[in-house]
């Protein structure tokens, strides 16, 4: 029987990838952000998950406006990164857990969600950077992946409550998977930041801390508002919080926060890293 061991939540700013490529982890600007990862790396070394289910948002690499799915699930044996427009070094390819992908898809549809299924799917920095941060020494990734993309680009966006429910449907699918994998869930992006408009540079630490304080203990507190409310509070791209909310939903057991790190600013972003442990509920 598979086990969902926990969740890793982290920002995915492209500049993080550039900082890694340049070896700037101990640079004074970057160190307070990278310092959030040794606890996550140690935990991953101890627990050794072999599958990662990743909630993220595509930034115009795999999806364009010609066809924009609200929720898309990868069901491929292999995923590659590609040039995202900046000619940066490519991220290492990922092996897919395609059997689990189809089980998740079946269970999602059973739960009345209607995802787009992708047997061919490029994955961007939003998916790859968390892996670089979690397994910095890896020559090949120690986990197979199931990528789940959430539309945070073109409105209407899915509601926060819908994303939490989606995550819970995925969590039920993982709990019912007959394989013996150890599964880690990942949610990428956020926290507060805004790249566009006259309000560019917007940061809202009180709101970010509200999210961090409730992520483990009361995720329903994060979904009482609409996605537009989140944009007002967290900035246009702060709405990537939807990926965190969905990932949190996939942890269906007893959830405990093992570490958190919050640092402003990284690029234009309030950057955060959270590690949650998930333990199966014991029947009363």
């Amino acid at each position: 029987m598979s086990t969902v061991v926990g969740g890793v939540f982290t920002s995915h700013v492209p500049a993080i990838g550039a900082a890694i490529a340049k070896g700037l982890q101990n640079d004074p600007y970057w160190k307070p952000f990278f310092d959030g990862f040794p606890p996550v790396q140690r935990w991953l070394q101890q627990v050794k998950p072999n599958v990662a289910v990743v909630f993220y948002n595509d930034h115009g690499l795999n999806f364009f406006l010609d066809k924009m799915p609200t929720f898309a699930v990868g069901a491929a044996a292999r995923y590659e990164n590609a040039d995202e427009g900046w000619g940066l070094p490519l991220f290492k390819p990922f092996e897919g857990a395609a059997d689990l992908s189809w089980h998740i898809i079946e269970q999602m549809v059973e739960s009345e969600f209607d995802p787009t299924t992708c047997q061919s799917m490029l994955v961007d920095h939003s998916l790859a950077i968390p892996f670089e941060l979690c397994w910095p020494e890896a020559e090949t990734w120690p986990v197979k992946i199931v990528p789940i993309a959430v539309n945070t680009v073109q409105h209407p966006l899915p509601s926060p409550a819908r994303c939490l429910a989606l995550g819970r449907a995925v969590g039920r699918a993982l709990d019912s998977w007959a394989g013996n994998e150890k599964i880690v869930v990942m949610g990428t992006g956020g926290l507060s930041h805004q790249l566009d408009g006259e309000r560019a540079g917007f940061i809202n630490t009180p709101y970010d801390l509200f999210c961090l304080d409730n992520l483990a203990t009361d995720p329903d507190a994060l979904v009482k508002q609409s996605s537009l409310d989140i944009i007002e509070q967290a900035g246009s791209q702060g709405v990537e919080l939807l990926n965190w909310i969905a990932a949190r939903g996939a942890l269906t057991g007893q959830v405990e926060e093992l570490s958190r790190n919050y640092h402003v600013p990284i690029s234009n972003t309030a950057a955060a890293t959270v590690l949650l442990e998930n333990k199966a509920l014991v029947a009363a």
């Binding site: 310092d35 606890p39 801390l209 570490s259 958190r260 790190n261 919050y262 640092h263 402003v264 309030a270």
Partner: peptide, 8 residues
Amino acid sequence: HQVTISQQ
């Protein structure tokens, strides 16, 4: 807005 909050 600079701030760093870390706990583990």
